[in-house]
Design a protein around this nucleic acid. Sequence first.
DNA 1: ACTTCAACAAACCGCCCGGTCGGTTTAAGT
DNA 2: ACTTAAACCGACCGGGCGGTTTGTTGAAGT
Lengths: 207, 207
Amino acid sequence: MDKNLKRMATMQRMQVTGLELFYKNGYYNTSVDDILKELNLSKGAFYYHFDSKEDFLIEILDNLLARKVYSMLIEPIEGHDNPLHLITNCFENALETAVHNEMDCGFILNNLINEFRGKNEAITRRLNEILQIWEVNLVSAIQKGKFNGHIDRHVDAEGIALFLMSSYMGVRTLMAEDAPSARKYRFMAQLKQYFKSLEVKHSPLKA
Amino acid sequence: MDKNLKRMATMQRMQVTGLELFYKNGYYNTSVDDILKELNLSKGAFYYHFDSKEDFLIEILDNLLARKVYSMLIEPIEGHDNPLHLITNCFENALETAVHNEMDCGFILNNLINEFRGKNEAITRRLNEILQIWEVNLVSAIQKGKFNGHIDRHVDAEGIALFLMSSYMGVRTLMAEDAPSARKYRFMAQLKQYFKSLEVKHSPLKA
DNA sequence: ACTTCAACAAACCGCCCGGTCGGTTTAAGT
DNA sequence: ACTTAAACCGACCGGGCGGTTTGTTGAAGT
């Protein structure tokens, strides 16, 4: 179906620039016209493809944001290597991407969550679902590390996951404000320091 | 001057509810009318006391937010005790306050920074100033701890401060989303774990 | 008693946004 | 060549927002 192809292409274009502008300016401060102006399209085109601005956002969350989080933060930590190494590399790459992003506006999931909290239940739930998927995968990676002998058996996997998510979300906000490269470097150093305390304790007498 | 007293009282009331609503709904999604409706005041009263909505916000940042951050996050870590203990207690209290806050909407400084990034230079600068004051005080507390022998001399004070600010900002966002009490508990446990790795290394042979 | 002015009320203005709708173009099917 | 429907255009509407202006009140000063 050629028609269907064009339809999908146009919808995709709209969603991509929509996500960009929502990221840059927030949802409520981005008008539908702003998005359409960027694409040289009209309002008729928009409301032909989407029911409403909110429906548009939901499509973006499911089609683009969820996949983005998965490919950048979840998929890289899958595998059977030491999860602390996997997570370190994953964060390193994610932060490096942020550093090189000319217009870094922080962690978009964090921004959207803050914007919709207490204002739109449906959107908030969807955003939290993405967070939960991230959390679940972190926890299971850590537990796998405990089982495989990479991580101390006594640590709290849920606690570690929460600490990782918190610090990542926070540093992304701070990196967007000032000195992204320096802050990334400092953050990664402290993360490694924290991870060292989670490794299995080798007998000090044996060393 | 009785007049001046009343003037100050009205302005204070406006600022307090203004901060509340900006915290709950964000700045751009809170209309001046919303604030005035809450106080049964008119727009005339508002624009008699303040030049604009932006001027109003700046007054709030200087008069209320900066002091709030100082009293909750900076003043408690001043002193000559072990700064790791001081920071632990400070975070414990700050997070406990958030847990008991019926309408916790995360860390307001984080929310405002995300909302104004790339949109209002003057506001963003003021918000960053508050962050910097926090950072400077964290750094100096840690350095004092290094000097006093509470903290390992080889650690990077700026890195620790950044890591603390990041994780705090992040966990406040996550606590506002779900399971605040459990998340606070888990977070504090991991923070203590991290802090352990920063303590002065006692000779293992001596123990 | 009269003036003065801070303090507030309320109507109003211009702008912008989300959403609608009738009309036009494009292209596939026959 | 004609039909049909998808894809798109752009003027328009209702409502809400930030901000202004004009008018009213009430207490202090003389």
